[in-house]
Write a protein that binds this DNA or RNA. Structure first.
Lengths: 121, 121
DNA sequence: CACTCGCGTAACTGTAAGGTTACGTATAAT
DNA sequence: ATTATACGTAACCTTACAGTTACGCGAGTG
């Protein structure tokens, strides 16, 4: 079967992205595939900690792993980020309206205060 | 500390987005501002649970709250999602220019040049 | 005034997860 | 055949957090 329409659970993807270290790992892999140990050296945490992060990233299919001798090379797979992107896509139109929303918010707050001062009791 | 224009910690934002219920709340608010109780009714969990989700969303500035009588109206604020979007932006080239796609892209460019120099077939 | 309604918070529980150190297992080097 | 290297995994601790029930408080209503 073609690799074409693989669907990723955005659930697992979002969860994997929720940790700053994991996002940093992805950022690192953007500059090229690397062995696990080399990735671990870039962070102030222990190697097993990175190993577990990589496990989660693997589960989310955000990285792929293959062995070269006694090294395990990790490679970025940005494909699952598409579902995140498409989720955000639905909010992109709201950005332009963001100012208007803020305006109505402020007006509502203002109205509240006016109401409060109108009844000085 | 620099008082720069409103900047959002993508840390808190990503964390807030990591929970499926919270994302669903945002999806709900996309269709209009609503009081907390009304939001809670849309989910199979208790009202206090939603209240705590709303608290996290507030902390991430993804929603705003204002009071109307004894109701608390929650409003979507998509602004922090921009930082998420700009993070993903750096990966967008990776999936639109995967190796196979890059190959066909180059070939297409080449074909276009050939077309331009000769006559369209 | 008392009463209800809407909603947040406190207190508690179960579970996931990030961190550590210690250990196991291949592979490479000597 | 040792020994070192590059990992992952197990066991453990601690914190975060999603869920619950019980309660408190301000805002409307009679």
């Amino acid at each position: 079967m073609r690799n074409r329409s693989v669907t990723y659970s955005s659930e697992v993807t979002f969860q994997a992205l929720s940790d700053p270290t994991r996002r940093a790992v992805l950022d690192l892999l953007r500059r090229g595939s690397q062995p696990a140990g080399h990735i671990a050296e870039a962070f102030p945490v222990s190697r097993p900690a990175i190993s577990k992060h990589l496990r989660l990233l693997r589960r989310a299919h955000l990285v792929r792993e293959h062995r070269e001798g006694r090294n395990r090379i990790y490679q970025l797979n940005p494909e699952p980020l598409r579902s995140v992107d498409s989720w955000i896509e639905q909010y992109r139109t709201f950005w332009s309206h963001s100012l208007a929303n803020l305006k109505s918010f402020v007006e509502a707050e203002h109205a509240k205060e006016m109401q409060a001062s109108r009844k000085p009791k």
